[in-house]
Design a protein around this nucleic acid. Structure first.
Lengths: 211, 211
DNA sequence: TTTTTTCTACTGGTATTCCGGTATTTTTTG
DNA sequence: CAAAAAATACCGGAATACCAGTAGAAAAAA
């Protein structure tokens, strides 16, 4: 049985990507593409009735988000390797996918060679990344040193409320805290983003995709 | 000479997409893929020495932006049809590409069938879009009626300055206007966006991609 | 268990925004 | 040209944000 082909599935809502992956993987003699799917639900149905050794998973699907789907896959079939495919190069996204059981993370601009290597590595139970992703992971503090501020949990919470148009007093009431505390947080936020006032704060935060 | 194959080029920095396009277009007997490129510069070099009837152009390339590249292509080779391929579904982006000479605009989640149709249409000198893009173009006023406010020139100008953290007085000085005027504009902006304060105003504006 | 970070809270004062109006002039559009 | 829209400008006052500090308690990291 061990000489049977590896069963590989593709989940991606871009037909072009599916097409490209299929063509690329044709060359690999030991791999059989057992199915391709454009929604998470479709794939989950398939997975419950079939063996899938490895799945190439686009984490931005129309029906479900990649994190949840990944977790579901590992729950239904813990031995299936999940390779995340994505355009998102944010650190947090990568980390979340790994946390949810993914074996690796590739950006969609990865070369065919990289993809092929990553599949091999994943199948031999290694965690694997495309070149660009490795770079992102490599520099943890570098980003923080270079402008993008790190926010605490409370700060993120309060930032959202401010962006929502809530005043210091209202936020304080909602969180059962002193307005003075909220103000301190607001000021710390402004300092972190080097913003002169809330208007700039919100702009900065949104540009940095903190909102 | 008219029974010669159509020369088609692909410009995209995602190898997977190139792969997918190539596979897809294999079926079309009258089309020859004359080259695929991952940077705008590479393609321009090629274009200057070769005939290209139609180019599938990813408008988010690492080296140059799609608008400029499209304009350059049409300048060097006015008879080359440019089909823009993109993930961006913003109206303004579509319009800009058309304005710069593109024959059509496809989202990357278009099906192979759509792509094929669009190529045929472009080659017969029609302007062509994938289904989703058509929808975006179709509703011009619909958006405006449904929440997204129309801003006047002045309002846009002042909105930008507010987002930049400038106060009423500073903006007034810069525009040689009374602070009271700026305040009126700010208030009108907040009313249009149904925002309670500047924080919410900026969030709304950015979400609506007015900033 | 120290040390550091985060969260909490304060004083006292200034600057700015925000509100509810009103109104003239200029520009655009039917 | 007349009507509508946009840009300009004003008053007075209440609410809120912003500044420059300081500091204890709780939680997280070393």
């Amino acid at each position: 049985m061990s000489q049977d082909k590896i069963q590989l599935a593709i989940v991606d809502d871009h037909p072009l990507i599916i097409q490209g992956l299929q063509t690329l993987l044709q060359d690999k003699a030991d791999i059989a593409i057992t199915g391709s799917f454009t929604t998470g639900a479709d794939f989950m149905t398939f997975l419950k009735a079939n063996t899938v050794h490895i799945v190439l998973l686009d984490i931005t699907l129309p029906d479900v988000n990649g994190m949840d789907l990944c977790r579901d896959i590992k729950r239904v079939s813990p031995d299936t390797y999940v390779l995340a495919l994505s355009n998102h190069n944010e650190r947090s996204m990568i980390m979340q996918m790994l946390h949810n059981g993914a074996s690796g993370y590739l950006l969609k601009n990865a070369s065919g060679r990289e993809l092929s290597d990553c599949i091999d590595e994943a199948l031999s139970d290694q965690v694997t990344f495309s070149r660009e992703v490795k770079e992102i992971i490599a520099r943890p503090a570098l980003n923080e040193l270079k402008g993008i501020p790190q926010l605490t949990k409370r700060e993120k919470e309060i930032l959202k409320q401010i962006a929502d148009g809530k005043t210091t007093v209202v936020i304080a009431e909602q969180l059962s805290l002193s307005p003075l505390t909220i103000e301190t947080h607001r000021r710390n936020l402004m300092q972190k983003f080097e913003a002169k006032n809330v208007a700039e704060l919100i702009r900065m935060a949104m540009q940095q995709k903190m909102l």
